[in-house]
């Protein structure tokens, strides 16, 4: 089977199985003759036919997602807030980093750094938005850590930017709140638990290998944390909210585990 060089679960490999419709064409047409609306019918048949698999029925999904929520709690319990992820040497760094999003790299819509702003919301005292220039002037922390994707691949990346915990303190965020949520230019959403947001190896990255992050990797601002799977590291961040209300994320809404710690 031919595979793209960058296989991704975030890009569906197959759509709805059309053969099911083909195989059951006769059935569908037969019911049509009984005078039912074609549109309603096809949709109904499709739901039934593809609903055979036990995994994506409503009941099964609600059960499996309950277990996934339990697994969130387990991960929170075993999370070591002061345990540092292994760091690596500069010569182990992959250049460029590996791209991943819920769409292909060609579909990346670059963010205009000049007009870009980081909006702040929620339990934050100083909610004035930040320009890219202001963020670039903040003290930088270097992070040479392993990126691990939920799919199983990994690479070592060299990221620089302001420590998220320090940034939260600078803007007067309530760090006793439960979550730090992000919105991105590509409508991606991500929510971190506060313990992870305050982990010493969680940064708002502006550079990769000393150079500004390029468009596919989140210019001008992205999240980089050493203790989460790759997809938690939101790119092209446009807004940050500190909150006690859980905001479901792009992938958690689709059934991926929310905590996604490593």
């Amino acid at each position: 089977m031919a595979r793209s060089p960058s296989p991704s679960i975030f890009r569906p490999k197959q759509g709805v199985d059309q053969s099911l419709i083909e195989d059951n064409k006769k059935l569908v047409q037969d019911i049509n003759r009984r005078g039912l609306l074609r549109g309603t019918l096809s949709l109904g048949a499709l739901t039934m036919l593809t609903g055979c698999n036990v995994s994506d029925t409503d009941t099964m999904q609600s059960f499996l997602r309950t277990i996934s929520a339990f697994n969130d709690k387990v991960q929170e319990a075993i999370f070591r807030p002061n345990h540092l992820a292994p760091t690596y040497s500069v010569d182990q760094v992959a250049k460029p980093p590996r791209f991943n999003a819920y769409y292909d790299v060609e579909d990346v819509k670059p963010v205009d750094g000049a007009s870009w702003k980081l909006e702040l919301a929620g339990l934050i005292q100083d909610k004035r938005p930040w320009t890219a220039q202001q963020i670039y002037q903040l003290p930088e922390q270097e992070l040479i850590v392993r990126h691990i994707c939920v799919e199983g691949w990994d690479y070592i990346g060299q990221w620089e930017g302001v420590n998220l915990g320090q940034f939260l303190k600078r803007i007067g965020a309530d760090t006793t709140a439960k979550y730090v949520s992000f919105k991105c230019a590509d409508d991606y959403t991500e929510t971190l638990d506060m313990a992870t947001a305050l982990h010493p190896q969680t940064i708002l990255a502006t550079k990769y290998a000393h150079d500004p992050i390029t468009d596919p990797f989140g210019f001008p601002l992205r999240l980089r944390t050493a203790t989460k799977l790759g997809f938690k590291n939101a790119k092209w961040i446009t807004a940050m909210e500190v909150t006690n209300t859980f905001i479901p994320t792009f992938w958690s809404k689709q059934g991926f585990n929310w905590f996604a710690g490593i």
Binding site: I9, S55, D56, I67, N257
Partner: peptide
């Protein structure tokens, strides 16, 4: 394999492990 999409495979794996 078990699961329609990757997330289902993960959900089943992290349920059955318990």
């Amino acid at each position: 394999t078990l699961g329609v999409w990757a997330q289902h495979g993960l959900q089943w794996h992290f349920f059955a492990m318990w």
